[in-house]
């Protein structure tokens, strides 16, 4: 692997020389000496992959990084395969990976030996929120209508795009608990993706769907077959979702972030962490990033390494309490 990277660097050199002029002016204590492996722990096409490829592209186009960011896909096990590989690469400052709630949820459900504490947090970049949808001709006008109905008839099914115990389920169960229901009483039906769940909602096969707000934008608006009851954000979102009230507006004190960020190898040197923190903070200010971000429906949510680390710990606590209520905690 080592040699291969050296070779990659040769290819990246011309690009690096070009950007060297701007970056060297900032007199960093540490700077990468070869190109950086930026791992998406999934196949091309998913959320992690989009983040990795977009970040690599923006960094290159804006000439921010001194070295090339090489996007590498390591799919498998909902991320577990990549985490196991990266965990072996102790202290390597040239390896980063994209991350999101599964880094906490997958280990909690027992499917990965490594969790977020095994890696170095670098920065949180963006976030999305959960959204609860019902069919447009449904009788439920507000979240409370829906939760009242669920209380009365626990058999009503709520579809989501991922397995029980992962993001959509946790988000729904947490909201239900905040609304005074038993978290475990929600009849959560997992589909093979948010799109699949929404199709089933349109066909009237299920009562409601919980999915990512970004994923659902295309489904809402005038003449749509679906209606949004609430988003899990602390305040209203913009764009096509400005009419959708938050949970909190409806008296349900609950928020849920579908955040995405970057982490590095275990025990990455502090200077390297500082370098990447600054790099990503700078990237978020560029026009290229803002254009890409808006097109993809992302919301900036930057946190530096330390804040991100604390945030992750808090998330782990929150998730394990919900998983505990559900009886899904495996440790």
């Amino acid at each position: 692997m080592k040699t291969s990277l050296k070779r990659l660097t040769l290819l990246a050199l011309p690009a690096a020389l070009l950007v060297g002029a701007t970056a060297s002016a900032q007199a960093q204590e540490w700077a990468p000496t070869k190109s950086i492996e930026f791992v998406a722990p999934a196949n091309p096409g998913g959320g992690w992959d989009t983040l990795v490829r977009t970040v690599s592209r923006v960094l290159q186009e804006e000439g921010l990084a001194e070295r090339n960011f090489a996007a590498i896909n390591v799919p498998g096990g909902g991320g577990a395969v990549a985490w196991a590989q990266i965990a072996r690469d102790n202290g390597n400052p040239h390896k980063l990976f994209a991350t999101s709630p599964p880094i906490i949820l997958v280990p909690l459900s027992g499917a990965s030996r490594y969790d977020h504490t095994d890696f170095t947090p670098i920065a949180r970049l963006i976030t999305d929120y959960s959204i609860i949808l019902v069919s447009a001709d449904s009788e439920y006008e507000t979240l409370n209508d829906l939760f009242d109905a669920l209380k009365e008839n626990p058999n009503l099914s709520v579809g989501g795009g991922s397995a029980p115990g992962s993001m959509d389920h946790i988000s729904m169960a947490g909201a239900a608990a905040a609304a005074g229901l038993e978290a475990a009483s929600v009849n959560y039906v997992p589909f093979s993706g948010g799109g699949d769940a929404m199709t089933n909602l349109m066909g009237g096969h299920i009562e409601a769907v919980i999915t990512g707000a970004g994923e659902s934008v295309g489904q809402l608006g005038e003449g749509s077959q679906l209606r949004a009851l609430g988003v899990s954000a602390p305040e209203r979102l913009g764009g096509g979702l400005e009419d959708v009230p938050t949970y909190q507006e409806q008296g349900i004190d609950y928020t849920f972030d579908i955040w995405r960020g970057v982490m590095g190898t275990p025990d990455m040197p502090a200077e390297a962490v500082a370098y990447y923190e600054d790099l990503f903070a700078e990237m978020l200010e560029t026009d290229g990033w803002q254009r890409a971000r808006d097109q993809l429906g992302w919301i900036d949510a930057y946190q530096d390494s330390e804040a991100f680390g604390d945030f992750l710990d808090a998330q782990q606590e929150q998730f394990s309490s919900v998983l505990g209520d559900l009886g899904l905690l495996r440790q």
């Binding site: 091309p44 993706g193 799109g195 929404m198 934008v217 749509s224 993809l296």
Partner: peptide
Amino acid sequence: LGVPGSGTTAVLLGALLVMGVNPGPM
């Protein structure tokens, strides 16, 4: 409908969103 029926169309949907088109009933 704006819903992907397969892995391939899921990627196409993603690409359309990136290009600023919201596939769907509208």
